[in-house]
Simulated scan of single mutants.
Amino acid sequence: MTQTPASAAPLLRIQNLSKQFGVGPGAVRAVQNVSFDILPGETLGLVGESGSGKSTIGRMLTRLIEPTDGSLLYRYETREVDLARLSQGALRPLRADIQIIFQDPYASLNPRMRIRDVLGEALSTHGLAPGAARQKRIDELLEQVGLRPEHAERFPHEFSGGQRQRIGIARALAVEPRFIVADEPLSALDVSIQAQVVNLLGELKERLNLTLLFISHDLDVVEYLCDRVVVLYLGRVIEVAPTEALYARPRHPYTQALLAAAPIPDPAQRREIPLLSGDLPSPKNPPSGCVFRTRCPLAESRCAQADMQLRVVGEGHLQACWKAQ
């Protein structure tokens, strides 16, 4: 884990980002007024339960789905551009700057294409490595992610899950991006392979000076890989902090419960914080006030009207509970 200067100008500023699926009473508010910064060269972790909006945010940042509201202010060359407002034509030059690694490495690869064609398609789309340089660049990409040049002639089904994810990483790197969204890149892999992919991401990030948004539900990996962490609950940001501070002293009761839910290898060790009861509320009808109040051990009547504004509780540490200290 590297340390990024807190004074660095953000590479990406997410401001009041929202996403609603559908209209009328059945509409799902998947993400609501989310704001945070991503600094150049850092690895920012995005965590929360399933259904908290993590992948939706990642796909909005890459414009694979369109935001309903809010701004995505990205520092491109010498200016700041709002990705959320750009037409597809205006966005095209920035596509090489911003890439994504998908959760399912098999579903994201065309089963009818050889790997040289998968990687070559990315290069040709952006006009990179033309002619004789194409094959050399493909060989370099495969070697960069721990595969061999001869693997370029194989089809996706001829690889293991870990190898397919390496190919997905190579495809993201092919266009020399500055910023990569890694959308739960480990969840479809065997535990024995996950550490290899985590180490690969860390090495590539350092070597290529990449900025990563690492979306995951594996809190141990987030602690190991990330510089800062954003915690989501029901599409809202409820805590942001440097990784070391968050794991040493989580302030929001949801973050406390989330970390307490991580497996303990010693069966005789008792949990200091009880696990949450109940299920995540429906994003179609979220609770009023603080959306966590229906599961919160600190909840009282005021929480139904309380706002969820982030409050500073330490250096670079913000949380959205008015009672938590």
Rank of each mutant, 00 (worst) to 15 (best):
D227E: 15
H252P: 08
Q309E: 09
E239R: 03
Q144E: 13
P67V: 04
S52A: 13
I169T: 10
V31G: 01
T68I: 09
V237F: 04
S87A: 07
Q163D: 07
Q15W: 08
E153T: 08
R85D: 08
G120Q: 07
D183A: 14
N33M: 03
E77I: 12
A304Q: 15
L91T: 03
R79I: 11
R249C: 06
V31T: 01
N209R: 14
H157Y: 14
R236K: 15
A132N: 13
P40G: 08
V197K: 02
R171H: 02
R85A: 15
R295Q: 06
L259E: 06
E272R: 15
L39D: 09
Q305V: 12
A90E: 15
D307C: 00
P177H: 10
A174K: 08
A90I: 01
L258F: 01
G235N: 00
C290V: 10
R164D: 02
L201C: 07
P286V: 04
M113K: 14
A170E: 13
D220M: 07
P111K: 02
G162D: 09
R164P: 13
A257R: 00
H151D: 15
P149R: 02
S87I: 00
R178L: 14
A96R: 14
P242H: 03
S18K: 00
T243H: 12
T125Y: 12
E176A: 13
I193N: 04
Q196D: 15
R75H: 14
G289Y: 01
P281M: 11
S55L: 07
A9P: 09
L86S: 00
Q165F: 11
S55F: 11
G58S: 11
D37R: 02
A245S: 11
L147C: 12
P130C: 11
S301H: 04
P93C: 07
F36A: 10
D307T: 10
A260S: 14
R112K: 04
R63V: 05
C226Y: 09
L142N: 06
E206T: 15
V221M: 00
E121R: 06
V240P: 03
A182W: 04
D183M: 08
A245N: 04
L11A: 05
P287H: 09
Q325P: 13
G120W: 02
Q319S: 09
R85H: 10
E300G: 13
S301G: 15
Q309G: 10
Q99T: 00
E206F: 06
L11M: 11
E272H: 09
L141M: 08
E49L: 05
R249I: 00
D218F: 05
R13G: 12
A152K: 01
Q194N: 10
Y224C: 01
P40L: 10
V240W: 05
G48S: 13
R29M: 05
Q99Y: 10
T125P: 07
R228I: 07
